[in-house]
């Protein structure tokens, strides 16, 4: 097992933060205050999660784990809509369907088909795997939804031209759908292609620090990368398709009221 960090060791890490803070103050970047708040928030949130997870793992009750998963899904969903600039009230259920469906599908595949822990609902697998997939889906979903709708808004003349030339809504949005999906997916393809050379992935590094053998850690890393990738693609596509039925009016015009 790895050696636990003592409070003193942790404090030494906060001491390291003084360096960037000194730079911010010296250059008067005006972000020192925000940075301190961010570090305090990170500390408080992680400690709370640590406490919570400790109990979740001790309990190892499927309902308690599931409740935590649901909370993660709800928070992720709200965060996606906010960051993509879409109205929560309109899109909430549709985007939740996309995010939850794709995350649970690929997490379920990883846990039930590949890992098969004993018991199957073991919180040590369910909670972190869903969390990792969600964290990554979040970014790609924000990017794809934002790209899709801003692409249509910015190129409204082009979009209307497609409709005037006889395109159905699905046909007219296809170029923007392609752009949005590519924008969301390309960074992950690049990350996979350089993984292990340019960067050592977080989960694998964490496992190794936690005492796992490297060969064991990389197998999990490969599994989680594929899960994340699949969930991302499915969530981005499903979210866009489901959102279309409320974002356009019955004459295929983009409704102005869907954006914050």
């Amino acid at each position: 097992m790895s050696s636990d960090l003592s409070i003193l060791s942790l404090l030494s890490m906060y001491a390291l933060m003084l360096l960037p803070l000194a730079v911010f103050l010296y250059l008067q970047l005006g972000i020192a205050r925000q940075t301190v708040i961010a570090v305090v928030r990170m500390t408080a949130q992680l400690f709370l999660v640590g406490l919570y997870l400790k109990y979740i793992f001790q309990l190892n009750n499927p309902f308690a784990s599931l409740a935590w998963v649901v909370i993660m899904l709800l928070v992720a969903n709200l965060s996606i809509l906010n960051k993509a600039g879409l109205k929560r009230g309109l899109f909430f259920w549709r985007s939740l369907t996309g995010v939850a469906g794709s995350t649970l599908f690929s997490a379920g595949w990883f846990i039930l088909v590949a890992i098969r822990p004993e018991p199957l609902y073991d919180a040590r697998y369910m909670v972190p795997i869903v969390g990792m997939i969600l964290g990554n889906c979040l970014r790609s979903n924000v990017l794809s939804l934002e790209r899709f709708y801003s692409g249509i808004r910015k190129n409204e003349n082009e979009f209307m031209t497609y409709l005037m030339l006889g395109a159905t809504l699905r046909e007219a949005v296809r170029p923007y759908l392609r752009d949005a999906l590519k924008a969301a997916i390309n960074p992950s393809v690049a990350t996979m292609a350089t993984m292990g050379i340019v960067s050592l992935p977080g989960m694998m590094t964490g496992q190794i620090l936690g005492g796992a053998m490297p060969m064991e850690a990389i197998k999990y890393q490969i599994g989680i990368m594929i899960c994340i990738f699949t969930a991302m693609v499915v969530a981005a596509l499903v979210n866009i398709l489901l959102s279309m039925s409320i974002a356009f009016d019955d004459h295929q015009r983009l409704k102005p009221g869907v954006f914050i």
């Binding site: 497609y162 030339l165 006889g166 395109a167 159905t168 046909e171």
Partner: peptide, 9 residues
């Protein structure tokens, strides 16, 4: 040829 890629035409 763009409109002829759409189902309508």
């Amino acid at each position: 040829l763009l409109p002829f890629h759409f189902k309508a035409h």
